[in-house]
Computed example of a mutant assay.
Amino acid sequence: MTPTPLTEVPWNSPCSPRCGFRIDAAKHIPAADIAAIEDRLTEPVYLYQEVIHGAGEPITPEEYTANGDVTEFRYGRDLAKIFDHEKLAHLRTFASVLPSEQAVVFTDNHDTQRHGDVLTHADGRTHELANAFMLAWPYGTPRVMSSYAFSDPDAGPPTAGSGITEDVDCSAAAWQCEHRQPRIANMVEFHNVVQGTGVTGWWDNGNDSIAFGRGDRGYLVLNDEDSALTGRSFHTSLPAGTYCDVFHGRVTATGCTGPTYTVNAAGWFRADVAAHDGVALHAGANVG
């Protein structure tokens, strides 16, 4: 029997380098078998594999990196541990086990938000701050969770009387829509703008206030203290200009819907940051 080439599977639109696959439960498929399937593809695709790390288990995420990217479940647990029980200052060298260029990272996903020690939408502002850090930090390929509310871990999404899943309505309490929350959604643009740059100008107060730049493309301040961070100036590598704080607003044709900050010729700007809040500036948000 001659196997059907995988390229004969019809696509809804012409394939491009953006085509790709997520392999669910890849851990239950030998890495060599996935490699054999991948070898039959005649066009380049993006591939990432769900491989959940389990302490002491014989199958590890590292076995699958030769095939493509791999989910790094340890990332969300380690990030939550720092936000919940340690100090944000410890994030200075934050990374997980997989190589950065092959790790798919997330604060939470549909499994861990039910059965894991991670931050979820139920953690409110802390969850937003953690996502902001993930999207600003140069480790892994970040993935943002978008979910629905639940009290029973086994509950499915909101459904109509017929049992059919209802259309998503981000104005309804049943749908969390984390990807639409401004402090997360705007940081996706930050992530895209700063790609390819390293961390510069790290600062922390030894506890739960941190700040760092991404080359001359962006700068993030996070204050997870119970009190405001006041009377401080921050040094960046951003060009001089007035920047929209995308943590609280977005760029419009006429300026910014939130506060703005002026970076002087020496790279300094002054900001007071409320408790459990932040400031995010990037080169694409220079409004004057």
Results as ranks from 00 to 15, higher is better:
165 T>P: 12
231 G>L: 14
166 E>Q: 13
180 R>D: 09
269 F>V: 02
109 N>V: 03
183 R>T: 12
47 L>K: 06
79 L>E: 05
198 G>H: 04
206 G>L: 07
80 A>L: 05
287 V>K: 14
240 A>F: 05
38 E>D: 14
240 A>L: 08
100 S>I: 04
248 H>M: 02
9 V>P: 00
32 A>W: 09
277 D>C: 07
215 G>K: 07
179 H>D: 15
257 T>P: 02
130 A>G: 05
41 L>H: 13
69 D>V: 02
69 D>Q: 13
125 R>G: 03
177 C>Y: 11
246 V>H: 15
139 Y>S: 08
18 R>D: 15
142 P>T: 04
70 V>Y: 06
285 A>V: 04
10 P>H: 11
98 L>R: 04
177 C>H: 10
106 F>W: 03
224 D>I: 01
46 Y>M: 03
19 C>I: 02
272 D>I: 00
259 P>M: 10
1 M>V: 06
216 D>I: 00
171 S>R: 13
254 T>S: 06
271 A>D: 12
197 T>G: 06
137 W>G: 15
285 A>P: 02
133 F>K: 14
74 R>W: 00
195 Q>I: 02
233 S>F: 09
260 T>I: 03
128 E>P: 02
97 V>K: 06
79 L>N: 07
106 F>I: 02
135 L>E: 12
268 W>Y: 11
237 S>N: 12
156 G>M: 10
74 R>K: 06
102 Q>G: 02
11 W>K: 05
214 R>D: 03
7 T>L: 03
155 A>Q: 15
35 A>Y: 08
223 N>E: 12
93 T>I: 01
48 Y>G: 03
128 E>A: 04
48 Y>F: 08
77 R>E: 11
53 H>S: 00
19 C>Q: 12
77 R>Q: 14
278 G>N: 15
172 A>F: 07
278 G>V: 07
288 G>A: 15
163 G>F: 11
225 E>R: 15
165 T>I: 10
120 T>Y: 03
59 I>S: 09
51 V>Y: 00
33 D>M: 08
1 M>T: 10
259 P>N: 15
275 A>R: 07
274 A>K: 12
22 R>G: 02
150 F>H: 10
257 T>L: 05
267 G>W: 05
138 P>V: 04
182 P>A: 08
10 P>R: 13
138 P>L: 07
128 E>I: 01
272 D>M: 03
150 F>W: 15
53 H>L: 00
13 S>T: 09
217 R>P: 00
261 Y>I: 02
143 R>F: 01
160 A>L: 11
198 G>A: 13
210 I>M: 11
269 F>I: 04
252 T>F: 08
167 D>L: 14
26 A>P: 09
152 D>A: 09
216 D>F: 00
45 V>H: 13
132 A>L: 14
269 F>H: 06
209 S>C: 08
245 D>V: 01
12 N>G: 07
233 S>Y: 14
57 E>W: 06
69 D>C: 08
206 G>M: 08
123 D>H: 14
206 G>P: 00
190 F>Y: 07
125 R>D: 10
29 I>Q: 13
